[in-house]
Each structure stands twice: as C-alpha cells, then as structure tokens.
C-alpha cells in the first residue's frame, strides 16, 4: 500500500488515501510513558480501531489527536501537512470531532441545545447579529436546526429533543454525545469506547449507527473499543496497543493471529 491509491472493501465502500498519520508519537506524564514511539496512519473513509488492555494508552492517543495533549516527540500529519501544536478547539475547526470515554455532555442543557452546540463551527453570525436576532442570526439558527434535526432523526432520538440531558439514562446519553459530534459534519470522528457499559441491544444499535455514519456520510472513524467481537466485525484495520507500545497493526484477521496480540490479551508467555 503506497498510501495514495484507493481500495474497495468487500462490502463496497471506497477507502481512499491516507488522511491522517501519526509519526513516532511519544507522550509522557512525568515518569509515566503513556505512548511510546507509535506510528500509524488513517485512510480516508475507513473505520480504524485502536484496541488494547486497560491503561495501554488508547485514550491518550485520541487526546493527542484532538489536541488535548501535545506529545513530547513525534508529529501529527493531517491531509498531507504537518500539524502545528494546536488547541482542542482549533482541531475541532479542522473537521475532527469526538466523543469521550466518560460521557462529557452539557448536563444543564437540553438534548437539542447540546446538539446545536455541536454546530457552532458552522455558525458565523457575530455577537451583534445574534443580539438583534432578526435576519442573519435567525436564518442561521433555523438552517442549523434543520441539520440538527436530520441527525436527531438519523439517531432516532426525536422524542427526547427537549429533555435536559442530565435526566437521560446512560445509553441515550452516549447516543446524544454521538449526535453532538456527528452534527459538526466532521471528516474524522473519534469515538472513545462508544459501547462501553451498554447492553447487547444498545450495542447493536450503536454498531449500526457507526456503520451507517461511515457508509452514508463517508466519515472516517477512529474508534477505541474493548469488545473484540465488535471490533473484528466493524473495523477495516486495527492498531493494537499494550503498555504504550504498538504491538500490532493490520486487518482484523492479521491482528487476530498476531502472537504478540494473543499474548497481550491472554497474558501468557509465547514460545
């Protein structure tokens, strides 16, 4: 693979060239090395999973991508350019959205307001326009509401539109958080354990949504997940991390048969 040619998956989706590349990333917290010299790439339109045992550094990797941590060493390349150190909100403006391992919604706001907040990078009316409301601000609000409603329909959360998110059960919160990320129309969507703590039914729904997002909108997805079954089912390629190191990278079948990966997961010595 030369990183430029596109391929077609067995289920008929087109996967393009490399859109993002992590080069030799090292991230330290004091003495703790959370990520040790990791490189991998993400191709346009693919579902890229990051797996690994607890504390492997998966969330830290997403936090590097979303600009939350600046790695001590290494480079992030995005769309063919080396990225300067950035603040998280600048990363968001480049078209990278995400959800969190521990739900991070705005509890005091309604579902609709949470989702509308996700549209903010598409809303350009100045404070003065917004204060006066009539005209520009109102038009923009209505146009973006339209988009928010599309996502609400897509994720089947119409009935809780006006509910304060603080009152929602866990599974729905996860869905609202996905809606908030999705409504930004990101090019890359980062999902940190989108199915953690869900029951089987909720997991199936979430899987379906992730696949649909990828399929219908062509969104590139980087996802962290513990459930091996799910990962092997839905992802195109998998990075495996253990103790901050990359121990495997490839299509699910390759990874499944990689002896280092088997060791890390089963915790036995390999001969």
């Amino acid at each position: 693979m030369d990183g430029q040619t596109s391929t077609v998956t067995p289920d008929g989706r087109t996967i393009g060239g490399v859109v993002m590349e992590m080069r030799n990333i090292t991230l330290r917290f004091g003495g703790v090395i959370a990520i040790k010299d990791i490189s991998f790439d993400v191709r346009h339109g693919e579902i890229r999973a990051i797996i690994g045992p607890n504390g492997a550094g998966k969330s830290s990797m997403l936090n590097v991508i979303s600009g939350f941590y600046n790695p001590q060493e290494g480079e992030v390349w995005y769309k063919g350019e080396k990225r300067k150190p950035m603040k998280p909100y600048q990363v968001a403006r480049q078209g990278i959205a995400r959800t969190f391992q521990n739900i991070a919604l705005f509890d005091g706001m309604t579902v609709l307001d949470n989702i509308m907040t996700g549209r903010l990078n598409h809303m350009k009316a100045s404070i003065l326009d917004q204060a006066i409301w009539w005209g520009r601000a109102e038009r923009e609000e209505v146009a973006n509401r339209q988009k928010a409603e599309e996502v609400i329909d897509f994720l089947e959360i119409q009935s809780i539109r006006k509910t304060p998110v603080g009152r929602l059960p866990y599974g729905l919160k996860k869905r609202v958080e996905l809606a908030r990320a999705l409504v930004a129309e990101p090019e890359i969507l980062l999902l940190d354990e989108p199915m953690a703590g869900m029951n089987v039914e909720e997991k199936e729904d979430m899987c379906r949504f992730i696949l649909d997002v990828n399929d219908e909108f062509g969104t590139t997805i980087v996802l962290i997940e513990h459930d091996m079954g799910v990962v092997m089912d839905i992802s195109d390629r998998v990075v495996v991390m253990d103790y901050g190191k990359k121990i495997g990278d490839g299509v699910p079948d390759e990874v499944r048969n990689n002896p280092d990966v088997i060791d890390a997961y089963l915790g036995v010595a390999h001969d």
Binding site: F68, Y89, A104, F106, M109, T117, A184
Partner: peptide, 15 residues
Amino acid sequence: MSIRDMDIAAEIIGV
C-alpha cells in the same frame, strides 16, 4: 452554557 457545564468538552467541540 457549554463552558459552564463542562469546559473541557466545550473546548473539544470547538468553543
């Protein structure tokens, strides 16, 4: 309001 409710999440969605 997003800053009020959770400033880290607000920043990561682009505030």
